[in-house]
């Protein structure tokens, strides 16, 4: 039934992580709704906006590393985690 989806362990972990992040953010949002504010990003954002911007930029960081260097993917991953944290906290 789901064999045609050709799951692999890394992609499964990837989607489970994304799912967990979304779930946690939703619970957090319901418990303590956030207010829109202005951080270092050029526009006023909510928590969800910052997460989206964080993840989208992370995707581009990965592509940049893949396209321009042969370094291990752990490096952009590390940078991305730090970046998402910064974006969520001060963005």
């Amino acid at each position: 039934m789901i064999a045609w989806m050709t799951w692999t362990l890394p992609t499964a972990i990837f989607f489970i992580t994304i799912g967990c992040i979304l779930f946690c953010m939703t619970v957090y949002e319901v418990r303590s709704p956030c207010v829109e504010r202005k951080g270092f990003l050029p526009i006023a954002t909510t928590r969800g906006d910052r997460l989206f911007i964080g993840l989208l930029v992370s995707a581009y960081i990965h592509l940049l590393f893949l396209g321009l260097s042969d370094m291990s993917l752990w490096i952009p991953l590390g940078i991305s985690v730090v970046w998402v944290a910064i974006a969520l906290r001060w963005g």
């Binding site: 045609w4 989806m5 989607f15």
Partner: peptide
């Protein structure tokens, strides 16, 4: 979502 996930799976194999 299901097709998108599948395409992601394809892309690493």
């Amino acid at each position: 979502v299901i097709p998108l996930m599948t395409v992601v799976n394809y892309s690493v194999q």
